[in-house]
């Protein structure tokens, strides 16, 4: 009994620790005072102003576009790579997995710097004129997103019974048809969670974006970083609260749906 209670208490304390800053940001989005330290009464004005704040809306658009494109391309490259790795012998597979782990285990600052130097180096050696900006950030995000896709898809591939695919081939299905009908439905949950994870990671990244971005292009992260010194526009709190609420609702909805399905 005591044990159960202490577990509850510990879990609650940890949840408070994890969510206190988030709750703070939600509260700040309704704060009439522009200062973070003072409560100036309840207001909705930041939510109204958000929709006329072009700078922030632009940053949001860039952030979402990069997150979506990088997750999509990472899913395609990562899924193909997973299928290939799954059919490889142990040694080459271990080598490829080791490469996959580099961006996950390496320091973000080193990954960011190395990509920035790559673009500069290519400009110097090949006399090209790649400018740091949208494309370079996108390339960087795809790179650090691929491992998350592979780590989500690989376990699903391993669970598949190889015989079902071969049975489909024996029964006259073309390899592509057999893939669509047999393999894809099995690994689809992995692909989906890989996509969502990659999207989230891209959305939340600051360090790598910071080193691979250039003038004239802002994501939410880089905009917030420049605003830290001159004071953050409260509209950003409002935007974050809206994004957080949207994802929360989405997750609750998906969970409800799968819970209902299980009952049936």
């Amino acid at each position: 009994m005591v044990r159960k209670l202490s577990r509850r208490v510990y879990l609650t304390v940890m949840l408070i620790f994890l969510y206190a800053p988030i709750l703070t940001l939600v509260v700040l989005s309704f704060n009439a005072s522009k200062s973070r330290a003072k409560w100036g009464g309840f207001t909705l004005k930041w939510y109204k102003q958000l929709f006329s704040n072009e700078e922030t809306l632009n940053a949001l658009y860039t952030t979402l576009l990069i997150a979506f494109l990088s997750a999509l391309i990472a899913v395609i490259l990562g899924t193909l790579a997973s299928i290939a790795m799954n059919s490889m012998k142990k040694k080459p597979r271990a080598l490829l997995m080791a490469i996959t782990n580099i961006p996950m285990l390496n320091a973000d600052i080193v990954t960011g710097i190395s990509l920035m130097l790559l673009f500069i180096f290519v400009n110097v050696v090949f006399r090209t004129r790649i400018r740091l900006g949208f494309t370079t950030v996108l390339l960087a995000h795809i790179t650090f997103n691929i491992p998350y896709v592979i780590l989500s898809v690989m376990p699903k591939l391993r669970q598949i019974n190889k015989n079902t695919y071969e049975a489909a081939l024996d029964l006259g299905a073309s390899p592509i048809y057999a893939f669509y009908k047999v393999i894809l439905p099995e690994i689809f949950p992995g692909i989906l969670s890989g996509f969502l994870l990659a999207f989230t990671m891209s959305l939340d990244d600051f360090t790598i974006t910071y080193f691979t971005t250039g003038p004239g292009i802002e994501t939410l992260s880089t905009q917030i970083y420049t605003e830290v010194r001159k004071g953050i526009q409260p509209e950003i709190y409002a935007l974050s609260t809206l994004m957080f609420a949207a994802v929360l609702l989405l997750l609750v909805f998906v969970n409800r749906k799968s819970a209902v399905k299980e009952k049936e």
Binding site: L15, L18, Y19, A20, P21, I22, T24, L25, L28, R36, A37, L197, T200, M201, L203, D204, D205, F206, L220, S221, I224, Y225, V228, I232, I236, Y237, S240, M243, F244, V247, L248, L251
Partner: peptide, 20 residues
Amino acid sequence: IFILPMWMNFLLRTISWQTL
């Protein structure tokens, strides 16, 4: 518990510790 907080930007989450 662990993925949801990431939808509030990393920098904002860290800054809000200042307020706390």
